[in-house]
Amino acid sequence: MKLHKESKGTLIVAILFIAFVGAISIYYLHLWSLVIMIPLLIMLGLIFWFFRVPYRAILDHNENVVAPVDGKVVMIKEVFEDEVLKANCIQVSIFMSPLNVHICRYPVSGDVIYKKYHPGKYLVAWHEKSSTENERTTVAVKSMTNHQVVFRQIAGYVARRIVFYCNIEDKAKAGHEFGFIKFGSRMDVFLPLDTEILCKIGDKTKGGIDVIARMKD
């Protein structure tokens, strides 16, 4: 199983901690150390599972908007986006549990025209205000259909590390990775009002594969 590059620091700390606790528990508790070690080894297995990088056959997309992450659609509504678009648009929000793949992918193809990191709070990721008050990043892409599409990585109550690798003037390719969020969070995508929405609240999404909307050329 391939692991994401963001796993390195977390796995080193986890393995060293488990090795230390294991050595102490074996020395003092002998066979009873299994009571401590089995849960710790299960936790280590979950960390490996969290940082997995599954193979995805990514197709080329021009008009399609693909799911930027694995997760569950929790919001589809008209909102006013005041950072980049400064206009009404459709917000599609996808919540990621700690068991989802947490690779963040471009929802559309085009050119990166904006990026910014915002420090903030750590409200639970499904809270409506988390989009504007939590720690987050904002990225905007001018799509191949000549629309501006904004998307945000949002930290949650558990997630405390957001990374994004894109830079202004980069070529965005729908479905390809641009960042990562650790341990539960949310992605918001802001689309033009005339976008055809192809998903509904409650849908489970597979990042880079599922088409969630289609923009008019």
Rank of each mutant, 00 (worst) to 15 (best):
M144N: 15
R136S: 02
H147R: 11
F51L: 07
S131V: 03
N88F: 10
G71T: 03
P54M: 08
P98M: 04
Y114T: 05
S109D: 12
K115H: 14
P54A: 06
A87M: 10
E81W: 02
E128L: 04
V84T: 08
V74E: 05
K77W: 07
E78K: 15
I58C: 09
Y122A: 05
N100C: 01
K116P: 09
F95E: 05
V92L: 14
S131I: 00
I113W: 04
Y106M: 13
V65A: 00
N64W: 03
K121A: 09
A140R: 01
I94S: 02
G110D: 06
E83F: 03
P107I: 08
K86W: 09
E135Q: 11
V139C: 12
Y117L: 14
V73C: 07
A87Q: 13
Y114Q: 08
V74D: 06
I113G: 04
V53P: 03
Y106H: 15
R105V: 00
K115N: 12
L99I: 10
I90H: 07
P107R: 08
A87C: 10
D82S: 13
L99N: 09
N100K: 02
C89D: 06
K86N: 15
K129T: 01
I90D: 04
V73P: 03
Q91M: 11
E63P: 01
V101K: 08
M75F: 02
M75L: 11
C89V: 11
V53R: 14
V74Y: 01
M144L: 15
M75T: 12
P107T: 10
V112F: 06
T137C: 08
G110F: 05
R56Y: 09
E81M: 01
C104F: 10
H127R: 07
N146Y: 09
E128P: 14
I113M: 11
K77H: 10
T137A: 10
V139Q: 04
T137L: 06
C104Y: 08
L59H: 14
S143P: 10
K72H: 03
K121I: 03
V101W: 10
S143Q: 11
E128N: 09
Y55G: 10
Y55R: 12
V141P: 01
D111A: 13
V65M: 06
R136W: 04
L85H: 05
P68R: 11
K142M: 13
F51E: 06
P68D: 10
V84L: 05
H61G: 01
N134R: 12
V66I: 13
V79Y: 06
V73W: 00
F50P: 05
I113P: 02
P68Y: 08
Q91L: 11
V92N: 03
K72D: 02
E83V: 05
I103N: 11
A87Y: 07
I76C: 05
N64F: 04
P54S: 12
V92Q: 01
E128S: 12
V69F: 06
F95W: 06
P68M: 07
R56G: 01
T138I: 15
P119K: 15
L99Q: 13
Y114N: 06
V74G: 03
T132W: 01
R56K: 15
V79M: 09
V73M: 09
M144K: 15
A57Y: 14
Y122K: 12
K142R: 14
D60I: 11
N100F: 03
P68H: 06
D82G: 14
M144D: 14
S131Y: 00
V139R: 00
G120D: 08
N146G: 07
V79E: 10
D70F: 04
S130V: 00
V74T: 13
